[in-house]
């Protein structure tokens, strides 16, 4: 909890706000949840930065995977889940390959995204992806450019997925409906539109 300074000026208040780490601001259960969902030993991180050093997203953005692992360890739930960088992991798993502590940082990010979804925090492109999967079975559905490329390579215009077998789409929809993914995505996008 940032301690009040009472400068009487909200802008100054924010600029000079207390940035100490207070133990009572933290949630130990956040670490427990992340470890349970991610099935990895986040608490063993020694902050070496091998993950950030391996990350293709890091040099192109402000995303620091190591920082998210730190937040998990310290139980800084709000700071982690409200940081838009959470969504910049490409899930390439390079960090997971190299982490000397045998932690899976990628799975820590996936766990946090899971938890953020419960808070209705999720960027719109991810929500649109849900809608696309619901409609076509694909996060990135086939398009004409791809179809032409496939033809040039001597492949059928559509891959042997739901594109070729649309009869499987209802099955996928059933799964998404079970987890209320589509329903929530529709709702959040509609709220955003308002």
């Amino acid at each position: 909890m940032a301690r009040e300074k009472n400068y009487g000026n909200p802008q100054l208040e924010n600029k000079l706000r207390d940035r100490y780490y207070y133990v009572d601001d933290t949630k130990p259960e956040f670490l427990a949840n992340v470890e349970k969902i991610g099935r990895t030993i986040a608490h063993m991180c020694y902050q070496c930065g091998t993950c950030t050093g391996s990350c293709p997203s890091a040099p192109r953005s402000s995303y620091r995977i190591r920082l998210f692992v730190r937040r998990a360890v310290l139980g800084l739930e709000e700071e982690a889940l409200t940081d838009p960088d959470l969504w910049l992991c490409t899930t390439c798993y390079s960090c997971t390959d190299r982490c000397p502590r045998d932690i899976a940082p990628t799975d820590i990010i996936m766990a946090m995204r899971n938890l953020a979804f419960k808070w209705d925090i999720i960027p719109r492109n991810f929500l649109q992806t849900v809608q696309l999967i619901y409609k076509s079975g694909h996060g990135v559905p086939n398009n004409d450019v791809n179809r032409a490329a496939r033809e040039r390579l001597g492949l059928p215009r559509d891959p042997p997925t739901t594109h070729a077998y649309p009869e499987f789409i209802p099955g996928i929809q059933k799964i998404l409906d079970h987890y209320k993914l589509k329903e929530n995505a529709d709702r959040m996008l509609a709220e955003e539109g308002k």
Binding site: C51, C55, R66
Partner: peptide, 9 residues
């Protein structure tokens, strides 16, 4: 690598 003090790759 990451310069973990700068927080920069």
């Amino acid at each position: 690598a990451e310069d973990t003090l700068l927080q920069r790759p």
